[in-house]
Design a protein around this nucleic acid. Structure first.
Lengths: 227, 227
DNA sequence: CCAAAAGTGTTCGCATTACACCCATGC
DNA sequence: GCATGGGTGTAATGCGAACACTTTTGG
């Protein structure tokens, strides 16, 4: 259980969970409660157990930190610089997770998490992140690049949206992740032309003209040229 | 040194080295000489040492197996099913390497390698691979998908070509990797229009009309929409 | 003179872009 | 009635796809 700088590498997983909240892309951070880096912000993660796959470890770590289950998870990259973890030699397999905002975890939580490892959990806008522990700054940067690229040629936006949504909400997701504005007419033309959406023939009302609601025909990852 | 099925995972790297030979994409395979899988074909690879990064481990393993150095290497994916290695729990970080055919390693080598781990080294066409040890079939499949995708939006073909080459040779590389024929006129128009090549004002002679030679302006990875 | 590969332009259709006005509702 | 976001069409441009013949060399 003690530091082992020259020992064979241990294996961990770290998860960068993204969501779009108020039109801005956010990552889920945890505040470390123990060890040399106590008090620092980091991505949730931990050691891989002997009897679980990497994917299973990522899903477990995410569930332990947040209670979230059945989340879209995708392996990102493995980080293995010899000195990335002050505790000892740890190779970390990073994952990206995407969730729709508004279910559980709508708000930040200040208390100590159930497993006692974290002193708090918070969504932070990717435009204003604190310095992160380990090499998690690099992990987030790599995850962002992957996310931007992948949203352009897959239907993965569905992971960021509830079952019913308006075309404007869909457009907001793309704009938040890609970081640029899109023309509304061209966007609607393109998206509707792809046939990925099913009109629900219901509307969302607000203090303005009601907006038509849509759902995805298929809520599973597919390769589709979107933008 | 004994099997440790329930112990913490060990970390290894495996390298899928590709080249184009006679117009067909080939992978470099090694024949295992020791252990439960002796006699089987596999990708070169081995344990990550305590003081080296993952990239360094991949480069070292490749050099040990083949003598090749300064090769284009890129991390591919990490494979970590609990039972992928009969020896014990090993998480493998897979790499893709790309080299120009014709330097060293033009031909296969039958003898035992310098480090004694392999009973032979051979290029095999990806269209006709033997069943591989571990989960290396999946590794090769994943690597192929990555390679095909990445050649379309980067200038990485340069890794597969010598310093001087003809446009037909360049086209052959794309056709071998992508697995489909390309129109010669459109190909030349597109490639020359990108301005990535420098005409050498020399020709290659054969038993036919001489072909103009070109070189890449920059031999380093860049993002470029090629096809 | 024959085989083999190199070299060269044009046309067509489709997809992307740019762009401005009216509509329906809540307050 | 006014503020807020919803909804709609057209024209111009650029890009990729299809397509056939002539040229140069070696043998």
């Amino acid at each position: 259980m003690s530091a082992a700088a020259a020992a064979a590498p241990a294996v961990a997983v770290d998860v960068a969970v993204f969501t779009v909240r108020d039109g801005a892309l956010h990552v889920l951070l945890v505040r470390l409660r123990r060890g040399a880096l106590a008090g620092r912000w980091a991505l949730p993660g931990g050691r891989v157990r002997a009897d679980e796959s990497l994917d299973e470890a990522a899903a477990r770590e995410l569930a332990e930190a947040t209670g979230l289950r059945d989340v879209y998870l995708e392996q990102l990259y493995s980080f293995g610089s010899p000195h990335r973890d002050p505790y000892g030699r740890v190779v970390s397999v990073a994952y990206v997770a995407l969730i729709a905002h508004g279910g559980r975890f709508a708000a930040d939580e200040e208390g100590v998490t159930a497993d006692g490892r974290y002193a708090g959990v918070a969504w932070r806008s990717v435009g204003a992140l604190p310095p992160l522990a380990y090499d998690h700054d690099s992990v987030v940067a790599t995850a962002l690049a992957r996310l931007r690229a992948k949203l352009s040629y897959t239907n993965l936006v569905y992971t960021l949206l509830p079952a019913a949504f308006t075309l404007s909400e869909l457009q907001t997701m793309y704009e938040a992740v890609l970081g640029r504005a899109l023309d509304r007419r061209n966007f609607r033309k393109k998206i509707l032309g792809l046939g990925l959406l099913r009109p629900l023939h219901r509307v969302r009302r607000g203090r303005h003209r009601p907006a038509a609601l849509y759902a995805f025909r298929h809520r599973r990852p597919m390769i589709v040229e979107i933008l």
